[in-house]
């Protein structure tokens, strides 16, 4: 958007603070999109007060990229606006709302930064775009390719997954490579799945523990993209190949693809979480989720490995439920189950 070169940043900042809803959105978008404000976390921290409101305020903004690549695109729905005729817009709005509600009600956390950071989503990104991602500031969703993948807003756990990438950026800020990257991915799957379970009020034993169920078009031999319960079994299809995820350290995949297999080896910590949640029973977000949340927010660091995740979740379980409590023992057993 060329306005970034014409309107000085201090004016945009003023609009972002004082303008009406739409002006604020446009100013914020311009500020965060201009080259001088690139650089992720540091800048987000500087600008955070502009996007934050009082604790407990849910603010969502949905944009339409109209099949282009410019972000965020055209503003199409803001908080409390009526429903759109566009189903992807409503799914992104409702899904980011469900994710906000999950983190607020389960952990008392207001948005990804804990300070009401506005949740921006762009739909209809790119051409036949079969992906969703977090770009450091917002969520972005493609419409799928019309052959294998449907639109990515269709699955609530995908929305929860992307938003959790934002949260991780503000907390452990795990490097997106090798084991720290696989942990980053796994935390997104864990909380993405919990958003879905929370919305459905499902006990851990009744959940499907699939990521991206409903994302595939009919005819594709797939239950989902990943299985946290049985990594490696989500799909087996002539076109897609077979799900390559390991569920145990002995099958850890060494590769240079995918930033060191971050979407592959995440199967190992995913299964550890499933093991803990089903050992503890009840709602997975009440105990297992709290343990994982505490480790992500207060214990893990950018270069943490699987072994660190084991140690820190076991420690978190001790802090929350007591040393040698059944919860802490279950955490040890869960990691042992995956070879750690």
């Amino acid at each position: 958007m060329p306005a970034c070169c014409i309107v000085p940043p201090y004016i945009l900042q003023s609009i972002a603070l004082k303008g009406d809803k739409r002006q604020q959105a446009a100013a914020w978008a311009t500020l965060t999109d201009s080259e001088q404000f690139r650089g992720g976390r540091r800048i987000l921290t500087v600008l955070a007060p502009l996007a934050s409101t009082a604790t407990g305020t849910k603010r969502r903004t949905i944009y339409d990229a109209r099949h282009g690549y410019a972000l965020p695109g055209r503003l199409v729905r803001a908080e409390r606006d009526p429903k759109s005729k566009d189903v992807a817009v409503n799914e992104a709005y409702d899904g980011s709302g469900a994710t906000y509600d999950f983190f607020y009600r389960s952990f008392g956390r207001s948005s990804i930064d804990g300070r009401g950071f506005r949740l921006d989503s762009t739909v209809h990104y790119g051409v036949n775009y079969d992906n969703a991602f977090w770009n450091g500031r917002q969520m972005v969703y493609g419409d799928g390719d019309g052959e294998i993948f449907r639109r990515f807003t269709v699955a609530l756990d995908v929305i929860g997954h992307e938003l959790t990438h934002g949260l991780t950026q503000y907390e452990a800020n795990l490097n997106y490579r090798d084991q720290p990257g696989a942990l980053n991915e796994s935390f997104s799957d864990v909380f993405g799945s919990l958003v879905k379970q929370f919305k459905r009020r499902q006990f851990s034993r009744d959940a499907d523990w699939l990521i991206g169920e409903g994302l595939f078009l009919p005819g594709v031999q797939a239950r989902g993209i990943r299985s946290m319960k049985e990594p490696g079994t989500a799909y087996d299809d002539p076109l897609l190949g077979k799900d390559p995820q390991p569920g145990h350290m002995r099958d850890y995949v060494r590769t240079i693809d995918d930033n060191g297999g971050v979407h592959i080896n995440s199967g190992i910590p995913n299964r550890a979480f499933y093991q803990l949640a089903t050992r503890l029973g009840g709602y997975a977000w009440e105990k297992a989720g709290r343990i994982w949340y505490l480790a992500l927010c207060d214990k893990l660091r950018a270069n943490s490995t699987f072994a660190d995740a084991m140690n820190m979740t076991v420690r978190a379980a001790g802090e929350l439920f007591g040393i040698n409590s059944k919860e802490q023992k279950a955490a040890r057993e869960a990691w042992a189950e995956v070879g750690l």
Binding site: D130, V158, H161, G212, D258, H263
Partner: peptide, 10 residues
């Protein structure tokens, strides 16, 4: 092409 949400190589 590698990576992406699904991590499926093309």
């Amino acid at each position: 092409r590698t990576g992406g949400f699904a991590g499926i190589k093309l």
